[in-house]
Design a protein around this nucleic acid. Structure first.
Lengths: 212, 212
DNA sequence: TTTTAAATAAGGAATTTCCCTGATAAGAAT
DNA sequence: ATTCTTATCAGGGAAATTCCTTATTTAAAA
């Protein structure tokens, strides 16, 4: 028999990690090479002990899975990354694949989907769980996902706004006029069709620009 | 041998439900009697097919685990409820026990903790995972958790604010003066030490008063 | 029965948002 | 080379909102 597929599991919920470890290990061609519970630990663990496939959650302490994916894709381009997460938004799925992922499975999917994803990406294919086909199609057809492409400065200000800073505080922090902050803010609101600051905060929360 | 403990699993992540089902079933005194993926399905499932212990997530579609717990405690007082969730905030833990739970285990805990919790509550004891002792102690010492006890009206308005409605819109919805809404809002801000609306939204999001 | 708290409301000052206009600099397109 | 676009910066002025204080009524609690 060939070498087994070496899997690395990254998720802050130990109960899930542990369960997946036990159950994936029962597959004859899979072995779990390591586990980690936060973004930094994943990176450290993989540097000491590389794997074939990284199964990665997005919401993790210390460093988000999306950042981990970016870093690990750069350092270990041959390693395949499968996101295993609850997030279904177009923005996050797009960012996941842009950060180098090869697979995307939802936690609401069956375990079997994850096993399928492992075998697919192992064979060099891309795997997206079928529940997401509608989302993908919508993004494909509308091309509207990228409607919310903010400039670097706007994104910076969006984040500060969502963290609760006032225009005044932001203008002090960035050493620009409050009027400039107002303009950026208005552009952010317009580009995203936010009706008020609350929608902005919810957007930032949903897209993990801020921790909640 | 005695009757096995009948467990009902409620979590919107199938991958976790499935894994727990397989692994808990390997315990000699446990049998999984049913599963559900949203709050309404849990209640329907239990009414058709009661269980000894309900293992319950909080964030679920259609009806939150907290509401499910309240309803099921009323309908089936003899059934024990263990929350299995990621939430560590004092408010949520308090609400969980007030809604009738007997156990509280974090998803970041080991599977073994869940098994221990099952056996504890089966024996009529209360089980709280040890990671939470600090949180419990803090709440116990400070008694400050209840500092944020808002009136029914205030909570209603907090929710609407967090959903993005303006004072004006709320005053129209509730058919009260905008000035009254302003007063309620000011009281909400004061009682919770919110510095701005963004903190209010984040509070509501963290405490699952709104869906994010 | 006195006290406390919730829900309602308003006046007026202070602050912020909203809408429009416009300058400058950098980069892309032609 | 020159047009075009876009990001960043900024201000004026009107409109809207928030902030702070005070006040009445009603219901519950001590």
């Amino acid at each position: 028999m060939n070498e087994k597929i070496r899997i690395y599991l990254a998720d802050d919920h130990k109960i899930l990690r542990e369960s997946l470890n036990i159950l994936l290990s029962q597959e004859e061609d899979i072995v779990v090479a390591g586990e980690a519970e936060d973004g930094l630990a994943v990176e450290d663990g993989l540097r000491k002990n590389p794997a074939d496939i990284l199964i990665l959650d997005i919401s993790m302490p210390k460093r988000s899975g999306l950042d981990v994916a970016k870093n690990m894709t750069r350092e270990y381009p041959e390693m395949k990354i499968i996101f295993l997460t609850m997030h279904k938004s177009e923005e996050i799925i797009a960012e996941a694949f842009e950060s180098g992922a090869k697979g995307y499975v939802l936690k609401e999917n069956a375990l079997e989907e994850l096993v399928k994803a492992i075998h697919s990406v192992k064979d060099g294919k891309v795997y997206v769980s079928s529940e997401l086909s509608q989302t993908l199609l919508h993004g494909f057809l509308s091309n509207e996902r990228r409607g919310s492409d903010l400039s670097v400065r706007e994104r910076e200000i969006l984040k500060l706004l969502a963290e609760g800073y006032s225009n005044k505080e932001i203008s002090d922090m960035l050493m620009i006029s409050i009027k400039t902050v107002e303009t950026h803010r208005a552009n952010i609101m317009r580009k995203n069709n936010f009706k008020n600051i609350t929608e902005l905060v919810l957007y930032a929360a949903r897209n993990h620009l801020i921790e909640i």
